[in-house]
Computed example of a mutant assay.
Amino acid sequence: MKANLRKIRKHRVYSEEFKVQLVQEFESGKHSVPELERLHGVASTVIYLWIYKFSTFNKKGFRVVEMKQSSSQKLKELEKRIKELEATVGRKKIMIDYLETMMEVAKEELDIDIKKNFSTPQSAGSGKKSKK
């Protein structure tokens, strides 16, 4: 005869310090909720409850929306974008310096003033002619 076997539920009790630590890791952007779930073996629904309970930013009644990418990945992408933009600015600065040097050479050697001279009067030939 087989005995009645019931599934024994595992009921874990976590300390308040552990819960607060997980919430702080989430708020700092170090880990997302699915990452915390995998790292600590705690269900995501439980982690969300802790976030609502212990978070200074997220309160009950407000939905916590997570992006698929973690904050650290976003930060790395933004730093990469900054480096690309700085390189572009550097190339443009080199081009500007080159063109200014060429304008100076043209003025000194060829006696051609490429820069606009603001002291010269406007030409009268660009106006509209009236019909007679």
Results as ranks from 00 to 15, higher is better:
residue 104 E to A: 15
residue 80 K to W: 12
residue 76 K to N: 15
residue 87 A to Y: 11
residue 27 E to W: 01
residue 104 E to S: 15
residue 97 D to V: 07
residue 66 E to I: 00
residue 46 V to N: 11
residue 102 M to E: 15
residue 21 Q to I: 06
residue 97 D to C: 06
residue 42 V to G: 02
residue 68 K to S: 10
residue 66 E to Y: 01
residue 34 P to A: 03
residue 33 V to A: 05
residue 48 Y to M: 02
residue 118 F to G: 01
residue 51 I to Y: 11
residue 74 K to S: 11
residue 94 I to P: 09
residue 72 S to F: 11
residue 22 L to P: 11
residue 107 K to H: 01
residue 14 Y to S: 05
residue 87 A to I: 14
residue 34 P to G: 08
residue 78 L to T: 09
residue 20 V to A: 05
residue 115 K to V: 15
residue 77 E to L: 00
residue 7 K to L: 04
residue 20 V to W: 00
residue 26 F to D: 00
residue 118 F to Q: 04
residue 13 V to D: 05
residue 24 Q to S: 14
residue 118 F to R: 08
residue 12 R to C: 13
residue 43 A to M: 07
residue 111 D to F: 13
residue 14 Y to F: 13
residue 103 M to C: 08
residue 87 A to P: 10
residue 85 L to S: 05
residue 102 M to P: 06
residue 24 Q to P: 01
residue 96 I to Y: 00
residue 94 I to K: 13
residue 55 S to E: 00
residue 47 I to M: 05
residue 25 E to R: 09
residue 29 G to Q: 04
residue 100 E to A: 09
residue 114 I to D: 10
residue 55 S to P: 00
residue 14 Y to H: 07
residue 27 E to T: 02
residue 107 K to W: 04
residue 24 Q to E: 10
residue 18 F to Y: 04
residue 84 E to R: 08
residue 93 K to V: 06
residue 87 A to C: 09
residue 104 E to T: 15
residue 86 E to I: 07
residue 95 M to T: 12
residue 92 K to Q: 12
residue 20 V to Y: 00
residue 56 T to E: 14
residue 68 K to P: 08
residue 38 R to Y: 10
residue 113 D to Q: 08
residue 91 R to D: 05
residue 53 K to T: 09
residue 61 G to D: 02
residue 102 M to N: 12
residue 89 V to D: 06
residue 78 L to P: 01
residue 47 I to R: 02
residue 96 I to W: 01
residue 75 L to I: 09
residue 85 L to M: 03
